Amino acid sequence: MTVRWTTLSGSSIGSVHVRDQLPLQDAVLTWTDPNAGHAVVAVADGHGHKLHFRSDTGAALAVVSAVEELRRILPEVVAADDPSVAEELLRTAADGLVSTWGAKVRHHVEAHPYAEAELALGAGEDVLRAYGSTVLACAAVGDLVLFLQIGDGDSVLVSAHGEADRPLPEDPSLDGLHTSSLCQPRPLEALRTAVVDARVDDVALVFLCTDGFGRPRVDSAGWWRETGQQLLEFSRSRGLHWLAEPAQVGGDDTTMALLVRSDVAGIDRPDLADTVPVPETAGD
């Protein structure tokens, strides 16, 4: 039986950004191959600081670049069907992601040159800084699940029993205030990758989310475990209605993308859409 993966995603703008009339800084992109059952998801969080005044565009370019580069390596991942080879290919994709993102940013600057006020902020000396963004991405190819991440946010896998785990190592530079970024001089130094073989480790679904989701949680260290259980239940029923709540409470944008494995007991939902919009909150 071919292992098939379904993608779901949603975003909600933070209340602080609404108050300050700022655009959504997060971005998300999903892709699926309905014939082979492969899938790729990516989320990104633009920094939003005044020095990163085009970070919403930077995040959008980051998810496009991530999906492009992960899709590029899929044929070789399938052919090898070997976690160690997949790890090497994943690093190739990450290198391509950084190069592709930088090229897309420079192309955007050529089409939309910096204004005098923006140049006064130093945008001319550091062309990429204005577009600063994190990026998290995952590709599911049969039984292999590939993760890459630069910056903050959470990458979590959940077993069929609802047990959650974070497969990526910690980034020691993350302190809750600062994050690694695609716009830093050597972003690959902050790269974290992992390859999980679902034939060895039980994997029912994967979720990626920006830091705006976990930040307002009381249990900041372990909220993702409970969320993993909830998402598994959701995948067996349907609904992403609670994604808007953290954005309202914490004030930051929130974005989540899921990869759901269709052959897990209780999950057989070919009708699941690639993108699930976040419902309006009461009173809107």
Rank of each mutant, 00 (worst) to 15 (best):
R199K: 14
L259K: 00
R215Y: 07
V63Q: 04
T7G: 02
D201I: 12
S173T: 13
V63P: 01
A139M: 10
E125S: 14
E88M: 13
P187F: 09
L128E: 10
D211S: 06
T227C: 01
A117G: 12
P113F: 05
G222L: 05
D211G: 07
A27I: 08
T57N: 09
A247P: 00
V3L: 13
L259I: 02
S11A: 08
L232A: 05
S235G: 12
A273P: 10
D165L: 03
H178I: 13
T227V: 06
G251W: 01
L258W: 13
L119Q: 15
D95C: 11
V158Q: 00
D20G: 01
E170Q: 07
D271F: 12
E245L: 09
G58F: 03
P34I: 10
L231R: 12
V77G: 08
L177R: 15
A80W: 11
R71Q: 15
G239Y: 06
W31V: 07
A94K: 02
V196L: 12
V195M: 09
G37Q: 01
T179M: 05
A123Y: 10
V109I: 15
T134F: 09
V105K: 02
L74V: 15
A59R: 06
G251K: 03
H112T: 14
P75H: 11
L51G: 13
V64D: 12
E118L: 12
V276T: 14
V158L: 00
V77S: 07
H112Y: 11
F207G: 01
R217F: 05
A282P: 04
L174T: 05
M1V: 11
R129K: 15
R54K: 06
